[in-house]
Design a protein around this nucleic acid. Structure first.
Lengths: 207, 207
DNA sequence: TCACTAGCTGTATATATTTACACGCAACCG
DNA sequence: CGGTTGCGTGTAAATATATACAGCTAGTGA
């Protein structure tokens, strides 16, 4: 989690309040006035510190160019993960396409991110190409659950089945082959469990 | 509803977009650039017009002092409609089970409510029992679109097809029969179009 | 025809805002 | 001890922004 000093927490709270009450972020001068600073530079230094810690993002040269980082902003958003770069953690910044305003608690257990589904290997489970899969980040999975797994740096969505020391990742589409991992060769990591899906777009005829 | 000219609607959309993308409202100059105006005063005049009509509120003397009026601001919840009482408008209070924190603008066109799907008559279109269907309230539908229709007080989800004066509501499941309405007997009203779905819960094995 | 609104161009200017530079003090870490 | 970070004061200047005034073209309703 973010490590902020008490003072920085107050500054952040003021930004949040200003945003909520006026719809725009404060200027340096407004921060200065509110905290009784004698110099706008005090505010500037705080903003830079907050930006360095990732609590806010500053856009240079623009008035009120302060934006709350998604993690700090609104607990009601989920990051959308597009293509996962090989080797990178799923939630790494470079994988995040955007954030969507959906309450994580809409799903049970809580969703941690949305993953854009590629391909139709899970179509018989009702998961289609381009769907947004709501994923609960966890290492644990029970037989029959749909999981997000990483096999040799490749991230995939499949149904999980363990039999003794052998783990099978089963597609829900007869056109695809199961992935079988027996502990020796390939590396396997469970990244999370599917807890829901979101599909966007009109349902036009698909003949 | 607000009466805005086409131009004003575009300006308002730009403000909304800027807010969504950058977290701050645009300046006059930014509006000017975006629309290709030669004078910031053109933007200023539009803003005043929008304020006069109540679409936005301006705060004098502040940079980016533009805020969307509550009526045009994007709320962030959608009502969930469960069983629709016979004869009642879909959005009537007694039909609303709860509200979910999902941005309506996640869908295009914007969703107005969520409808809990009953039965599997649309399963081949990827819509399953217990799914939450995101619905855009409108009377208009084109052939092939999935609509929420009311036939004799009964609300149903089907694929829309019109042939001359005959309207067919087609299920996406061979086990069900199409509903055919020819203007005489039954009454038919289109309540909205499906613009997305949300499915909650783990995808456990279902053999 | 007149008054009014929508939509602009063009010019200016006051003010709002960001941001750099130069310092000071205290606390903490290796 | 020396270097770093947190937290400020004070000053200045470059830019970013808001906003007024003067005018122009069209369309619309009385």
């Amino acid at each position: 989690m973010l490590e902020l000093t008490d003072r920085q927490t107050l500054i952040l709270a003021f930004i949040r309040d200003t945003l909520a009450e006026r719809g725009i972020p404060p200027t340096r001068a407004e921060i200065m006035d509110h905290f009784g600073f004698a110099s706008p530079n005090a505010a500037q230094a705080h903003l830079r510190a907050l930006a360095r810690r990732g609590a806010i993002e500053l856009s240079a040269g623009h008035s009120r160019g302060i934006r709350l980082s998604p993690q700090v902003a609104d607990p009601d958003t989920l990051p959308l993960i597009g293509r996962v770069a090989a080797g990178a953690p799923i939630l790494a910044v470079e994988n995040i396409e955007t954030h969507h305003r959906i309450a994580p608690s809409l799903f049970k257990p809580r969703a941690d991110y949305l993953l854009r589904v590629r391909g139709d290997s899970m179509i018989d489970a009702g998961i289609r190409d381009d769907d947004l899969l709501a994923v609960h980040a966890t290492r644990e999975a029970a037989n029959g659950q749909v999981v997000v797994a990483r096999v040799d740096d490749e991230v995939t969505v499949k149904r999980f089945r363990r039999r003794g020391s052998i783990i099978e990742l089963l597609p829900a589409n007869p056109a695809y082959e199961p992935i079988v991992v027996d502990g020796s060769g390939q590396s396997l990591a469970i990244e999370g469990r599917a807890v829901g899906i979101i599909r966007r777009g009109e349902f036009s005829d698909r003949p």
